[in-house]
């Protein structure tokens, strides 16, 4: 996934209504009418959100002329969550490094006073 694709995905997901629509679709495909109902929105308003989601590749719509049911596409969501996971991992590593650094500092500045305490994180 490129940065711009990720951008599009995130921009689409930034709206709470669109996230709610995706959450709804997670439990199975829905028609526009079915989607409009719980959100008390007009059909055009829902359709507008669906277009954004479709453009971002987050949903796909069926061919059936009358209903064109919407389905969730999970791949872009996975890309986003993978990306978040990487970032979180970076920070986990920094905080681990901080642990090692604190141990080194304390060892350097007088193991005598602290004694030989067992180190390592909890």
């Amino acid at each position: 996934m490129t940065a711009s694709q990720l951008d599009a995905t995130l921009a689409a997901l930034a709206d709470p209504t669109r996230r709610a629509i995706l959450a709804q679709l997670a439990s199975g495909e829905c028609t526009v009418t079915e989607l409009a109902e719980p959100f008390e929105m007009t059909m055009p308003a829902v359709t507008k959100h669906l277009k954004v989601l479709e453009k971002a590749g987050l949903i796909e719509r069926g061919r059936e002329a009358q209903t064109r049911p919407c389905r969730l596409r999970a791949a872009p969501l996975k890309a986003v969550s993978d990306w978040v996971e990487d970032y979180r991992q970076d920070w986990e590593e920094s905080l681990d490094r901080l642990d090692g650094y604190l141990q080194d500092l304390q060892a350097a500045e007088g193991g005598a006073t602290r004694g030989r305490k067992k180190q390592r994180r909890k």
Partner: peptide, 21 residues
């Protein structure tokens, strides 16, 4: 589509963390 835009997504990505489906 600007290159290097990834970083801007950090914040968004976190924003979205709990909306994973």
């Amino acid at each position: 589509a600007e290159e290097g835009g990834l970083e801007s997504l950090e914040r968004l990505a976190h924003f979205l963390r709990t909306s994973r489906v």
